[in-house]
Design a protein around this nucleic acid. Structure first.
Lengths: 321, 321
DNA sequence: ATGAAAGCGCTAACAA
DNA sequence: TTGTTAGCGCTTTCAT
């Protein structure tokens, strides 16, 4: 191919990567030969030579989740525009598959959406890491997220403003940093508003609709049951309301419910869900930009939490008691 | 590192890839040196040498969509188990970014979830391609999907069995192969059941909740309006029902609605949505297996459509007229 | 069982 | 402006 154009491989390389660095006549000849042979540059070889992968890895638990997919889409958009490929990996796989990821030369950086990983594994990675939404206390990694404690407080305040005094809690999976922060926000706000924290009103969940549905039964069986529910996720809120409906209890008639996340379906649920909006696309975008900037500058991404604003969205699932 | 163990790089390579091919003493020495230096095999270099990418690319429109994300997760699972990385790409990006994808040495195969791509681009790819859900008539590509025509018929039959005679249709985006097949299924079933196909009952949509909501207004304004709606997607069905609710019309009291896809939220919607189940995880899994088998055998994946079964799931959104 | 040598396909210095 | 040379870090014959 290089010989067909009568030039060296170096010239072909130059023509393709920086055409202005090459004579017009030569360029024409090379381009012609390229067209004639159907030559395709082997990006893998170029990447090896330049010692970069031109790819970033997105590591998340539960890729099927609608919460993550919006983030993934935003990341892909930003990375794609920067010429980087996005590789997807489920963070729940065996940890011996996770170790090599950050140091096998096939990725330039990692976007970590799972705060539950073994810190030792993360520490072993040699590429820059930016966390999204979740974080790890053990490591001082840069993180793009929201203020979950304050945000959860918004929801509780809203319920309290509506006159609710007995407010129950459907939490997230134990051990998860978001669960902990949101639970803390719930407790703090309840205390601040002088509302009772009854043990029987603390229901555990795992962010899923199934867990919300399960909680509905527990709630319904509670003596002097709560008049409002604050949930650690929209999915559990939706599951809760749905199960209530099946039990003949209606939201907001019999119980007010507030969610957390503002996933796409919440707005269209019946009733539409009052919830705390998480700017998922912005989170993904910002994290990706952060990581890419670090790759381009060669400096590590700015450590510390970067907080994006979240806000309460009041809809039909909550009403005055 | 090789010199630290007092062996050649070839031996290190052997020790790491096929330990049994190397003497026990040497192996021990190498492993020790590996541990001491924190040596990491550079997968990119290995892949170049072996002329493979150890990765497959998933090309889909609208990565944020919950319909796709389940497929993505299944693909990742299968590919991960086979030691392949999954790269994500939005098929809606400029086509000049799509061309190189299938022939730049950075991917071994492509899973294509978008039937709307320019066939010329696809034809230019040099790696094997398997289509998922959608297909392209112009190319004889292997495809894993469901029988959309028959499946849509299931939904119409169900509505007809319930006594509905005026059944409206909310379609998908024009030009999409799934839209066409599902519309065909609707029309065929209506005809077969001897039901009237009125122009005013054919509403177009684009699979989204917003389009379903929009259709609700059109439907409500129709004289002698339909008593049932068949939708080309769950999202549009949910949007329709939700908007009806806002207009003071209830499902299934005032209108029966059937969806298509059986996304996770449909089961928990109020009312739970009657719909046609699409085995999304199985589709993703099967397609990935198909592609990977082709990569391992060196033979192209079996051409032709591979049909996975779909079934009607009757829930609360439909009832006798 | 191990080592030497030759690349995979490209790019980056350095010369010319 | 263009060619020559030397690798990127690995695997893989082919010898030994």
């Amino acid at each position: 191919m290089a010989r067909l154009a009568g030039v060296s491989t170096a010239t072909v390389s130059r023509t393709l990567s920086r055409p202005e660095k090459v004579g017009a006549a030569t360029r024409a000849r090379v381009m012609q030969a390229v067209a004639a042979t159907g030559y395709r540059l082997n990006a893998a070889a170029r990447d090896l030579r330049q010692r970069r992968a031109r790819a970033i890895t997105l590591l998340a638990p539960n890729l099927a989740n609608t919460y993550f997919s919006r983030i993934v889409a935003a990341v892909q958009e930003v990375a794609g525009a920067a010429g980087l490929r996005v590789q997807l990996l489920d963070s729940q796989v065996e940890s011996d598959r996770l170790g090599p990821v950050g140091s096998d030369g096939r990725t330039d950086g990692i976007l970590l959406l799972d705060g539950g990983l073994d810190p030792e594994i993360v520490r072993g990675w040699t590429v820059p890491v930016v966390m999204v939404c979740e974080w790890m206390d053990a490591l001082g990694l840069p993180c793009v997220g929201t203020d979950n404690v304050a945000a959860m407080g918004l929801a509780v305040d809203h319920l309290a403003d509506l006159g609710h005094r007995r407010i129950a809690w459907i939490g997230g999976p134990p051990g998860n940093v978001l669960s902990a922060a949101r639970a803390e926000g719930f407790t703090a706000a309840m205390t601040r508003r002088g509302l009772p924290l009854r043990d029987r009103d603390r229901l555990t969940g795992d962010f899923t609709m199934a867990s919300g549905a399960c909680a509905a039964h527990l709630w319904a069986a509670t003596p002097e049951r709560a008049t409002a529910i604050a949930c650690a996720s929209d999915e559990s809120a939706l599951g809760f309301i749905s199960e209530c409906d099946r039990m003949g209890l209606a939201c907001p008639r019999d119980v007010s419910v507030a969610g957390f996340d503002d996933i796409d379906f919440s707005e269209r649920f019946i009733p539409p869900l009052t919830t705390v909006h998480q700017p998922r696309a912005a989170l993904g975008r910002r994290a990706a930009e952060q990581l890419i900037a670090a790759l381009e500058s060669g400096e590590p991404p700015p450590a510390g939490r970067q907080i994006l604003p979240s806000r309460l969205v009041v809809r039909g699932s909550t009403r005055a008691v």
